[in-house]
Design a binder for these strands. Structure first.
Length: 511
RNA sequence: GGGGCGGUAGCCAAGUGGCUAAGGCAACGGAUUGCAAAUCCGUCACGCGCGGGUUCGACUCCCGCUCGCCCCUCCA
């Protein structure tokens, strides 16, 4: 089946075929680790995970690599005199505050002034969140998730190559800059060609900095600065690398190729980050292509608006999972959310449209996860867990495959699955096989019915169980007032109550 | 000013140049229930941001406009 992806490079849907048929080489821009990643970041990471799982679904072997940006870049990188506060220093302040309030686990960061400890702390948090949400590459740390700070040598090597090949120069300020005029393709990805760039339109370019560059769009590769909180020796003085070089370097190094198949990231990275990556990699390799496909996820809105710290909508994964989000009425939701629910909420709409994260949407997703889980449980019972192998001739699976192959149409795929999940298939073993294959991409059907219960404390389980029995007793005695009170108690603790002839069952709500 | 993406019912969200515009949620009616929940059955867009054009026919193609979002050197 032909896979079609929208390529930012051409602004068109293109049929995807890997350059090397044995392996798809894929690189995703990962998090900066000066703070917790928020759900907007995770939308982008989950998008990359869907790309990877889709490729695997269609039988490709995928080598997926992600970076961890742990070099403390200036808060204002454009500020060439280094006046901005280092992000790692800002993070140190934050961690010190969090340590006081007990948010940082005992022993996690023994010295908040050590930037490597800060970076590792947030890296660990990121990995934990990513694994919770089922992002595959997170289980491949550290082989396929690389730290920038552990690849400084490779960056210096690439900078040397760029200097040798005439794509870089040392400015009067001692900073090594990339010369955008040396690379004729500059602007091809973003449309921001040199003639179109409106210098400083974003208001983030300082005049003083520009004086040292040959062209206003030239960007930093290495900055000598012995006062920087993270610094390394280099032929250009002790200092630190520019932001863009790490991805060019690590993609080439870890994927062992000058040209890779797919590069993903958030839409804001198209310019300058990915434009600069292309300039660097192509400048160093001499090839005219870095990534054959560039794929970008649109931004996430929260309740219809941009996420904002002042509105309290900069949710982290833990904020959502632990119920610290606001409902439509502005109340704190308070109910724990199953990770599969958040995963589905963040993947269910098309990656090239803005996604609106809402409390209502989360409730919707919870219903869908529950429905799929119940469906799976029914199928497993019906066929004693013996799933049969099915191929794309199986109607739902074929439809699912068609949707995915059409530029990752997850919403369309869900439109096929959800009504199917209300049916009772004639061949439960085949249906289970199909569902399992689809879930390899979606990753939203919790593994076993008991896995959620296992996550609860034993005492809570037995407490709820006891209330269920009391409810049954009251009902048997036709003491409905008591029964209703007990039911209310169980529900208040985040459970759905189901009464049946064989007794009351409480199920923890997924959100 | 420039580059790019999007605007389908209360909400989320597919889709096609031409049968009655998927699906989910919510809502409503019914079955069931002590009452609910869950489940099941049924109802729910004469219209697809606005205005033109092309066409026998457009929500789907083209032009203009409008709104939202991203970028034009912090950003997923």
């Amino acid at each position: 089946m032909a896979l079609r992806f929208y390529n930012t490079l051409s602004n068109e849907l293109e049929t995807f075929v890997p350059a090397d048929e044995t392996t798809v080489r894929m690189y995703s821009c990962g998090p900066t680790v000066y703070d917790f990643a928020h759900i907007g970041n995770f939308r982008s990471f989950l998008f990359a995970d869907i790309v990877r799982r889709t490729l695997e679904f269609f039988g490709h072997n995928v080598h997926h690599v992600m970076n961890i940006t742990d070099v403390g870049h200036m808060t204002e990188d454009a500020n060439a005199d280094g006046a901005g506060e280092d992000k790692m220093q800002a993070a140190a302040r934050r961690v010190k505050e969090d340590k006081k309030s007990g948010k940082v686990p005992e022993g996690a960061v023994t010295n908040p002034d050590d930037p490597y400890q800060i970076a590792q702390y947030y890296t660990d948090c990121f990995l934990e969140d990513a694994r919770t949400l089922g992002i595959k590459v997170a289980f491949e740390y550290p082989e396929n998730i690389l730290h920038a700070t552990q690849n400084i040598d490779a960056m210096q090597e690439m900078i040397s190559q760029l200097l040798d090949r005439g794509h870089a120069y040392v400015g009067p300020d001692g900073v090594v800059y990339y010369s955008v005029e040396s690379f004729s393709q500059y602007g091809r990805l973003s449309g921001n060609t040199l003639d179109r760039l409106m210098s400083g339109a974003g208001g983030r370019v300082s005049e003083a900095n520009q004086a040292n560059k040959r062209h206003p769009a030239d960007f930093m590769l290495w900055k000598p600065d012995s006062t920087h909180i993270m610094k390394w020796d280099s032929p250009w003085g002790t200092g630190y690398p520019g932001w863009h070089i790490e991805c060019s370097c690590m993609a080439r190094k870890r994927l062992a190729a000058d040209v890779i198949d797919i590069h993903t990231g958030g839409e804001d990275l198209i310019f300058p980050h990915h434009e600069c990556e292309i300039a660097q990699t192509c400048g160093a390799t001499g090839k005219d292509t870095f990534a054959r496909f560039w794929m970008h996820a649109r931004f996430l809105l929260v309740e219809g608006e941009k996420m904002s710290k002042s509105k309290g909508s900069f949710y982290t994964v833990r904020d959502v999972l632990e119920g610290r989000i606001k409902t439509e009425s502005g109340q704190t939701a308070g109910v724990r959310v199953h990770p599969a629910v958040l995963r589905l909420e963040l993947i269910k709409s098309h990656y090239r449209g803005n996604m609106n994260f809402t409390h209502k949407g989360l409730m919707d997703s919870a219903g869908a996860v529950k429905r799929l889980t119940d469906f799976r449980n029914r199928l497993e019972q019906a066929c004693a867990g013996a799933a049969a192998d099915v191929d794309f001739d199986y109607p739902i699976l074929g439809k699912f495959a068609d949707c995915l192959a059409d530029d990752l149409n997850i919403a369309g795929a869900l439109g096929a699955i959800l009504p199917w999940a209300s049916t009772t298939p004639d061949d439960p073993a085949a249906a289970l096989g199909a569902l399992n294959r689809m879930n390899e991409v979606l990753g939203v059907v919790p593994l076993t019915p008991s896995s959620d219960a296992d996550a609860e404390s034993g005492s809570e389980n037995s407490h709820i169980e006891a209330l269920c029995r009391q409810l049954d007793e009251a009902r048997a005695k036709k003491d409905y007032a008591t029964a209703d009170t007990i039911r209310g108690q169980i529900q208040d603790q985040g459970y759905d109550v189901k009464t049946s002839p064989s007794g009351t069952i409480a199920e923890r709500r997924l959100a």
